[in-house]
Simulated assay, not measured.
Amino acid sequence: MALTPPLQPMLAEARPTLPRDSALPGGLAFEQKPDGYRAILFAGRDRAVLQSRNGSDLGPAFPEIGAAARVLPPLVLDGELVVAAEGHLDFGELQRRSRYRGATARNAARTASAHLIVFDVLDTADGPLLDQPYQARRALLEGLFADGILGPPFALCPATTDRTTASDWLDPAWGAVGIEGVVVKGLAQTYQPGRRGWLKVRARASAEAVVGSVTGRVTAPSTLLLGRYDSDGRLRFVARTAPLSRTASREVGARLYWGDEMHPWQGRRFSAGWGSKETIDHRPVVPDVVVEFTGDTAVDAGRWRHPVRYLRVRDDVSPEQLPLVDG
C-alpha cells in the first residue's frame, strides 16, 4: 500500500445552489452528504486505522469498524462515519461514542453501532488511485460492493448524475433523516488531498425563534442569539445568526430593548461556534421579538449547529406560539 496515515482528505467549498455542468471537469456527479464525521479508513489484514479529518485516530472509539477492516483486502477508503438510531442519523450519539474507549466503546458498538458510508476508494493492493478520475474510482468502489468485498458496517454512498434527483436530496425531508445536503464532484476530477476542489450545497429550511440576546449594539445588532422555550418555561438557546446586513440590523434593532437583571441569559456564556472554547460577548434583550430564519438541517436536540441566516421579523407570531424545545 502506497498511502499511509495521516492523509489529508479532499474537501468541498460551500455553494448556495447546485452548479451547472461546466462547474467541474468532465460533467457533474452528485452525492448525498450524511451528517457524520469525515473519516479515511486504512484497511487490510495487517492494519486498521480510522483517521479523522484532522488526522487523529478514531479507531479506539469505534472498534466494530476496525474489526471489519481487518478482514478486508488492502484498501484505503474515504467516507462519512455515522450512527443511526430510530430511523435517522444521530449526530449526538456519534459525538458521545467518539469519547468512549475500552469496554465502554465495545459495549456501545453493540448497542449503537457505527457505519462508514463510503464515497471513494483511494488505494488498493494494485496501487494508489489519486490520479484516476472520479468516474473510474466510483466504478471500482461500486464493484467492491457488488462483489461482496464490502458490506456492513460499510455502506455505499448514494450518487447520481441526474440534477433533478440531486435537487430532491436537498428537500428538508431528507434533512430530517440525517442527509445534510449534496456534494458535487467532477466526473474527470482526480483526488487532490487537502484541496477544496469539490462543491457542497446544504439543504435549508425556514423556522422561527425569539431574539434573546445580540452582539454589537442593541439598536443595531451585528448578530442575533435566538431561543425557544422548553416545557418548564426556560428560554433555551437554539441558534445564532450570521452577521446581519445593515438593513436587517436596523429592522430588528428598532424593535429591541435591553433586558433587565432578571433576564434568563444575564451572565450566561455562549460558545462562539460548534466545538469552540471562545465565548460570545452578548447583550440580553427583552425576549418578545420573533424572527424567521433559514438554517441547514444539522439540528441537535432543537439547536442549530451552524450559523443561520436572518430573513425577517414575524410580528404576527408571539414567543408563546413557537414550538417547544426539549432534550
Rank of each mutant, 00 (worst) to 15 (best):
Leu50Val: 07
Trp198Ile: 01
Phe91Ile: 06
Leu130Tyr: 12
Thr164Pro: 08
Pro6Leu: 06
Ala109Thr: 03
Ile40Cys: 02
Val289Met: 11
Asp281Gly: 05
Pro193Gln: 15
Asp78His: 13
Thr17Ala: 12
Trp265His: 11
Asp232Leu: 13
Lys200Gln: 14
Ser52Thr: 05
Asp78Asn: 13
Gly253Val: 10
Ala220Lys: 11
Thr297Ile: 10
Pro73Val: 11
Asp230Tyr: 12
Glu208Ile: 02
Ser56Val: 03
Leu50Pro: 08
Asp162Leu: 05
Tyr229Ile: 04
His115Pro: 00
Arg228Gly: 13
Met1Lys: 01
Phe62Arg: 04
Pro34Asn: 03
Thr223Gly: 09
Val83Gln: 03
Leu140Gly: 06
Gly216Gln: 08
Leu81Met: 05
Pro25Glu: 01
Ala105Tyr: 10
Gly216Trp: 13
Thr219Glu: 12
Phe42Met: 02
Gly275Asn: 12
Leu170Ser: 05
Ala176Gln: 15
Glu278Val: 12
Pro172Asp: 11
Ser213Arg: 14
Ala205Ser: 11
Glu31Val: 05
Pro34His: 05
Pro6Arg: 02
Arg99Met: 09
Glu93Ile: 05
Pro128Leu: 02
Leu225Val: 06
Leu140Val: 03
Glu80Cys: 04
Ala108Cys: 07
Arg283Tyr: 12
Thr223Tyr: 04
Leu3Thr: 05
Ala109Tyr: 09
Gly216Cys: 09
Ser22Ile: 11
Gln8Ser: 12
